[in-house]
Amino acid sequence: MENPIIKVDHLQKHFGDLKVLNDIDFSVNKGEVISIIGSSGSGKSTLLRCINLLEIPDGGSISFHGKDIMDRSQSLTDYRSKVGMVFQSFNLFNNKNVLDNCIIGQRKVLKRNKDEAKAIAQENLKKVGMSAFEHADSTKLSGGQKQRVAIARALSMNPEVLLFDEPTSALDPEMVGEVLEVMKDLAAQGLTMVVVTHEMQFAKDVSDRVIFMDKGVIAEEGTPEEIFENPKNPRTQQFLSRYSAR
């Protein structure tokens, strides 16, 4: 088997006395779409934030192409530019318009020239269906539009992996679809993705692998069929029954 892009070993994270992540092991392979599901407070988002070092793990290691990302001799900014992140609350830069949101990282981090950065930004905005809005003020878009721009912004860095932290949880129900469509397209194009989500249908249809987290540990991991059709862990069964009951 090919070496994984990201490998997480025995990851630990505490917030004060609260153990949020306890001995997490998992890896992300090239081209894979991984969904992480679980109830609120199970540590899903914290795990994702640890991978991008927005939270600093207390123990264990995370390696990127075999190199420990906690090793300070490695460039943190270089690593982060290769691992994109899409946030629940979009976090578009409020002082920039749509196009500039997608350009700034390319210019300042990847040092691309103006024309190249603009072309790449426009290409990605087209991909998410936001071309018509490239000069719009980013604060004046709807939630679904903001999230699509945020995806284009992350894509413009040409990341090897894209992390999605509950990308549709802050959206009005009628806008969830447009964002999920974009994500499905990306998955079909072979982008490596790790998606923390409450959208079970998406996890079922799009992922190659599903991880169920409970109380800071990976309670069960498998293909969508294994997790959704034949969950082995009673906690998984309980969690999924609450969703199917809806």
Binding site: N52, T77, D78, K82, M85, N94, N95, I104, V109, R153
Partner: peptide, 23 residues
Amino acid sequence: VDPGQTEAAKSLGMTNLQTMIFV
């Protein structure tokens, strides 16, 4: 300024100084 702005800048790989100046 919303801490999410800083997180987004960091997630793109921007340095602390770049984040301060441009965002």
